[in-house]
Design a protein around this nucleic acid. Structure first.
Lengths: 165, 165
DNA sequence: CTTGGAAAGTCAACAAGCCTGACGTATTTT
DNA sequence: AAAATACGTCAGGCTTGTTGACTTTCCAAG
């Protein structure tokens, strides 16, 4: 953070600065996903399964349609992932009480165990980065990430924070 | 940023806080890649092509082996991407001067044009997020991202910043 | 009460992008 | 001359995403 970069609230947005931000995002995302990916490699599951497990753990009873919105994939794509998780007894799919078209998703004990393992490996990495950077940097990090979300995703993100069902 | 979260330098690293960071990273990355992805959809190119173009633009004359390290993919995978870019006249591959086994990669005018378009769309998004969050948040953002990189990637990232060839 | 549309989920087939393994060629190093 | 390096390619496989066509369920308008 030398000379010309800070100080002026506008001048730091040079194309060069932005390119560096873009590259940082690219490299950091790789580090971010490396730990769980490694845990999963060799198994029959991948990153898509991890994501599904994560959000079902986050909101037990999550509807398939909500998971679809969150993950931003087609229902056919999600279905394949969910199918294997259900068949393998990691996720339980219960017919909706009010509306029988809906399916409510829950982790089984086995599913919880895997999710916890994956989540812990990733949290460990993020925790370490947070510690290195310090609380103020983390606050800024979160602000920029939130600003970088697409509008709809910012809404979804908000409802997750507030434990929304 | 309410009550119990800040203030203590350790207490803010609850599992809940870390999970939120993980989700923020997930949603933000989607926003981050959306603009160039959209520009490319309908064409015969994808995100992999964009990444190659980006780094060749960044370091003209980039060797294939270096690009391989940066992108973290196999040469077979990169080759397919590079093949189409070269065949379509977006990238030029010149035999190395010092070592004739090497190939130095350059963007053609056509390649530069596409790269500029993709890059501008992405920079526009990042610039907007930076403006919303403010300079201090951006500094923190960059710090956390750097801490979140795998060690080798942090090195690579550094050499790119310093215009390293 | 029926009928027709919308919503939720499933099955099938296919594409993109990444992977491993094996091999070939040119060049450089030992 | 032999070994190592840099690059390219063929073959085959996996994961994750896509579209299209279908069933089941729900709800509302006639």
């Amino acid at each position: 953070m030398s000379d010309t970069q800070l100080g002026d609230n506008l001048l730091f947005l040079t194309d060069e600065q932005l390119r560096q931000g873009i590259e940082a995002m690219f490299f950091a995302y790789r580090g971010f996903t490396a730990a769980p990916d490694q845990l999963l490699e060799g198994t029959e599951y991948g990153r898509a399964h991890h994501r599904a497990l994560h959000f079902i753990a986050r909101v037990p009873g999550m509807k398939v349609s909500r998971l679809l919105t969150i993950l931003g994939v087609t229902k056919q794509s999600l279905n394949r992932v969910l199918r294997s998780l259900i068949d393998d007894g990691l996720v339980e799919s219960r017919v909706g009480l009010a509306d029988k078209r809906e399916r409510n998703l829950y982790l089984t004990e086995k599913g919880s165990a895997l999710e916890a393992e994956l989540s812990e490996s990733q949290r460990k990495w993020v925790r370490s980065a947070y510690r290195k950077a310090g609380p103020e940097a983390v606050a800024g990090f979160r602000q920029v990430l939130e600003a970088m979300m697409d509008g709809e995703m910012r809404r979804v993100y908000g409802t997750l924070r507030d434990g929304g069902t």
